[in-house]
Nucleic acid binder design. Sequence first.
DNA 1: GTCTATACTCGGATAGAC
DNA 2: GTCTATCCGAGTATAGAC
Lengths: 212, 212
Amino acid sequence: MAQAQQGRRGSYAKGIAKREEILERALEVIAREGYRGASVKELAEAVGLSQAGLLHYFDSKEELFTEILRKRDEVDLAHYAPADGPAAPPFPADLDLIPTYLELIRHNAEVPGLVQLFSRMAVDAADPSHPAHAFFLGRSAALRAVFAEALTKLQDDGRLTTAIDADTLARIFQAVADGLQVQWMQDPDVDMAGTMSALFDALSTTPTQTQR
Amino acid sequence: MAQAQQGRRGSYAKGIAKREEILERALEVIAREGYRGASVKELAEAVGLSQAGLLHYFDSKEELFTEILRKRDEVDLAHYAPADGPAAPPFPADLDLIPTYLELIRHNAEVPGLVQLFSRMAVDAADPSHPAHAFFLGRSAALRAVFAEALTKLQDDGRLTTAIDADTLARIFQAVADGLQVQWMQDPDVDMAGTMSALFDALSTTPTQTQR
DNA sequence: GTCTATACTCGGATAGAC
DNA sequence: GTCTATCCGAGTATAGAC
């Protein structure tokens, strides 16, 4: 009960490496092959294990998929946060946040399965009793906090409208991103990054365009 | 094969009235009691029928729930389109569209179950093989068209920014609305209408506020 | 640690009586 | 037209062999 268990429940140092490996493989597979209400069995086979073998590392299906999303944030953060100290996931509080975010959105368009998984879970996890509920609340708040900070700086520099407070703006950008994902899933011709960018430009006070 | 069948498949004039009645009851029940992955059986009992009895009127679960959403648009349209000729669902092309839309958003906050159902289906129906795929594509496009028309008028009147074309603006408003719904489901404190309204104001060129 | 096999549950669909 | 009863498939979880 008191020993150091840094993984999740019941996993000792031994298993956690494999766990991470599984999650990375899962990310690749889902990104490439898509997610259509995937079952544990399907994912297990894609990852090279039996269903029971996979569930050996995770307590339940919900935990498994939640961890996949967490891992996704982890790799995205590592990739899009060039110089990082202990920055708050899923994004660093750096200044060039908007272009970086647009880059990430462009990247998302390359991994439809992950977008599907995320959107699906976001809806399901709205139920407070869902295992991923806390994860989404926390992630969502963290994302907005980082955004709000960056947007405040832009407002202070006179580069962004002050007609809306930064917190609300952060919420709006988040909503647009999430909403565009759904539209894009339904119609892949939708230009998520371009639309986001257009909104940002329209709310900017300088004639400068965001570099796309 | 040639006789007039105005309902869906295999339902003759007799059944369609009951069908509509069922859908109305379903709307009430879901709005009030919420939707958490509801099964046909649950809904059937809430509506006063057995599972088999309910499926007598609908070919499948997916068709049933799609029809519920369609009915929802129908009653919303009837309620929020005061004087209507043959206007395009789910909204009339009238001028006071923005305040009306805000009203509808406020109304949505009163019927969480319907929002959950809609969001869930919107994600699932992203799959082109989903029975509701076409419904969502059509609805979405129709909504944007109505919006784009109204927004164009506002731009022509010099009351709205011309930094973004009306079509893109329509898409943005749609995305914000959808995204805010997800945020609101996760955290009911989120003020959907207020946030939408703030964005609209910020994109307006006149100092006038939208009447909330 | 990983597998096979199985138990169990749930939910949608269908057959057939009334 | 509506019910009861049943079937069937899917999917998760678990037991137990290796």
